[in-house]
């Protein structure tokens, strides 16, 4: 049979494809629907948080930080309750990471504050002596992309049926409404910060990346 195939590249390629694809069909199809059910209480991110999540992705925080607490005592003691599938139901893309050069962040909102993040992002070693994390001062001046965050949320709503604008869930509405709401949320974060520049920018209607990122990190619980 193999000799026969090796002289007929077309059939060879077909056999090859079926052999390779087989595992994917078996593995991926069955549990797909089940794994995407949200856990009770899981909410989609607000526009400001999504803008922060985009900053997290832009600067590849996931290259060094995981968002996946494994079911071991040593992990639940350090990071909190182990992660559940449904908690990720609205995560597009997922951000589990594959390397912990720094600690896990899946529930960082439970034990770090706005103030802590502000100091830490400006100069990590000032809060954690010995830290090897880079400094991120540019996040204090770069403006967060709220418009894309809105497009992100609206795509989730329109294309994937994520329940924005339903009772008990974050409000999205039009771009204008969403922008006003994001600015409101940003003011609350900025009120807890001490960087005058950041406060001035938010007061002037601009949201620096750091504010959005902190809103996102605080939402990880």
């Amino acid at each position: 049979m193999f000799h026969w195939l090796e002289q007929r590249p077309f059939f060879f390629a077909v056999m090859l494809f079926l052999t390779v694809a087989f595992a994917g069909f078996i593995e991926i199809i069955p549990d797909f629907a089940k794994a995407s059910q949200p856990t009770v209480g899981t909410k989609p991110h607000t526009v400001l948080e999504l803008a922060g999540r985009q900053v997290y992705i832009k600067d590849s925080c996931n290259a060094c930080h995981s968002q996946l607490i494994r079911p071991f005592k040593s992990e639940t003691d350090r990071y909190g309750m182990y992660s559940l599938s449904g908690e990720y139901a609205y995560d597009r893309p997922f951000l589990w990471g594959s390397k912990r050069t720094g600690p896990d962040l899946h529930r960082v909102g439970n034990y770090r504050t706005t103030d802590w993040h502000e100091n830490h992002m400006m100069d990590p070693a000032s809060v954690v002596p010995g830290s090897i994390m880079p400094k991120y001062p540019h996040m204090f001046t770069n403006i967060a992309d709220l418009a894309t965050a809105y497009a992100n949320a609206n795509t989730q709503k329109e294309v994937f049926g994520v329940p924005y604008d339903t009772p008990g869930m974050p409000k999205l509405g039009s771009w204008k409404e969403a922008k006003a709401q994001a600015l409101e949320d940003a003011k609350k974060v900025a009120a807890e910060m001490k960087n005058q520049n950041v406060k001035d920018m938010v007061a002037a209607g601009k949201v620096p990346e750091i504010v959005a990122l902190i809103a996102y990190l605080n939402s990880l619980k």
Partner: peptide
């Protein structure tokens, strides 16, 4: 996401 951005300059 650009195609579902409404009037947001995304």
């Amino acid at each position: 996401t650009f195609f579902w951005s409404g009037d947001a300059p995304s």
